[in-house]
């Protein structure tokens, strides 16, 4: 095991971040099962995509910097990429869901948002 050779502060910080990231991602994915309909389910995985992934990336930065004795921040690439792309997937899925449910009156009698514009 190489991870036992890092200083105490990095050990504590990375442990806290990993546990927080794990809990957030688990709750977000549990939302996929617990929430009632598609539009509500869109919100669950966003948690794992934002703060959960951020926590894991920060933990990775901390451990890699402590092991290499210099500041390693390559993980910034993944953060930038996910921040730029995951909203695109969500918006496309949202539009697809609205488009394919047009005219069936929504889940509980409320009218589903009208399909206007091409945003």
């Amino acid at each position: 095991m190489t991870v036992t050779e890092i200083p105490l502060w990095a050990d504590l910080a990375a442990s806290l971040l990993l546990v927080a990231g794990g809990i957030l991602t688990l709750i977000g994915s549990a939302g996929l099962l617990r929430l009632p309909d598609l539009f509500a389910r869109m919100h669950g995985p966003t948690m794992g995509n934002t703060l959960g992934l951020g926590c894991v990336l920060l933990a990775s930065i901390v451990v890699a910097s402590a092991l290499a004795h210099r500041f390693v921040f390559q993980e910034l690439i993944i953060a930038l990429f996910v921040v730029a792309t995951s909203p695109v997937t969500s918006i496309l899925l949202m539009r697809a869901g609205i488009y394919r449910r047009r005219g069936d009156g929504g889940t509980d009698g409320k009218v589903v948002a009208p399909l206007d514009g091409n945003a």
Binding site: T46, V83, I91, M94, G117, A119
Partner: peptide, 18 residues
Amino acid sequence: LACIITATPGTVWAGLSP
């Protein structure tokens, strides 16, 4: 604005009127 709204958990952008 669309990216900010969608990246914040709890809100998703769903369209803009023409």
